[in-house]
Write a protein that binds this DNA or RNA. Sequence first.
DNA 1: AAGTGGTCTAGACCACGTA
DNA 2: ACGTGGTCTAGACCACTTA
Lengths: 232, 232
Amino acid sequence: MPDGRQSWKDVRERIHEWILSGRYAPGDKLPRDADIAVELACARSTVQRAMQDLSDSGFVERRRKGGTRVRQDPVVRATLDIPITRREVEDRGGQYGYQLIGKTTQIPPRAVLAAMGLTAPRKLLRVEALHLSDGRPYILEDRWVCTTTAPGILDIDLSRENANEWLVRHKPYTRFQVKFYALNADDRTAELLSATPGDALLAIERTTWIDDAPITSVTSVAAPGYQILSRS
Amino acid sequence: MPDGRQSWKDVRERIHEWILSGRYAPGDKLPRDADIAVELACARSTVQRAMQDLSDSGFVERRRKGGTRVRQDPVVRATLDIPITRREVEDRGGQYGYQLIGKTTQIPPRAVLAAMGLTAPRKLLRVEALHLSDGRPYILEDRWVCTTTAPGILDIDLSRENANEWLVRHKPYTRFQVKFYALNADDRTAELLSATPGDALLAIERTTWIDDAPITSVTSVAAPGYQILSRS
DNA sequence: AAGTGGTCTAGACCACGTA
DNA sequence: ACGTGGTCTAGACCACTTA
């Protein structure tokens, strides 16, 4: 314990060690921030910052007046980065390619309406496209766009410009929801992704809103072997 | 602009609106924190807090001396909660059940060693178990435990006690990694999960460490239809 | 009603990276 | 070298919640 400055990360580490070592077991109450600040010889706000991080990470639970307790059932909280596909491909050293498959205006299936929080059926723009890595199919996306919220999309030449990238640059969202699941490739999907019908594929469904107005809902199906990793 | 107190979340919202409205477009440089603080009539540290959040969320990019810029390619950063399975089942209103399938000590396949960061092959404890919801198979887990890092696991009656819950309570980790992918059910997996061979299933692989010492690596395969959702 | 976490402020200094 | 973000401190007040 040198008497130099301690960052809140150091303080977080100290407290984390108390938990790891069993000095404070799951369910135990930790001292008040102010007391910890005295013990560790730092400002209370530094302890507060450390505690907030431990709380965000699911290690402790904090309540006003109730104090801080070590969580009984730590929740694993994973953070995933979902970059735009072009960047993902290029970061892996691949050559990115994009291909428009279809563009229509139609009433989407119930599941899509539900995902976007729409109650009444209405026509939406549907864009199907394929992302390629080194010329090989990488991700097949089936996108529905609300043309009321994002009318500008209608002026874009989607055979040249990528719908996702256009939206991300011109229609920032305030809220989003992501869903992961596995599905068996049907004949069409298999053909487009150069897979075999029945192959298990990872599907990523993303829906974005500006406040309560849905912008787009897209289901991306990845080619066989695709994995998603949490940040370090 | 009422002259009441503003929280850093309010400030974050104000700056976010600047970006949404196009006042600052992707690639643009934002004013220095200090100037924003003057404009919004708050302390610089409040702006700093807001900016840190916007940076964590992937909206802006900050560099010392370089200033703050709106990101060109916003990264979608999703946070997932992965609770212990008992809690997940009970939160969904189901009756949780647990069943030990097998427990052996053997040398794991290369992939498992690699996931744990082990270079030399060595024997690990392997525990296979089934989690049930209302008596129906829910998740099949195939776990490898490093008995050097977590020797206590050998004293546990794993037919009664859940390996995951024991580890989570007695062996807190300092670091972890999560991986998601899809796989086709093989005959054995299908039988254990009451699925059909070939069904697409979601696999979640989690590895935990204390510092650099691996604790456990577990691959959980969920029954058909399982989905993972991001937090709000 | 009182105690605890949550946040703000103002000022200071540090550390990093760019110009 | 210097400007910008990053963080700490000390003190103050607020807000929630439970004793």
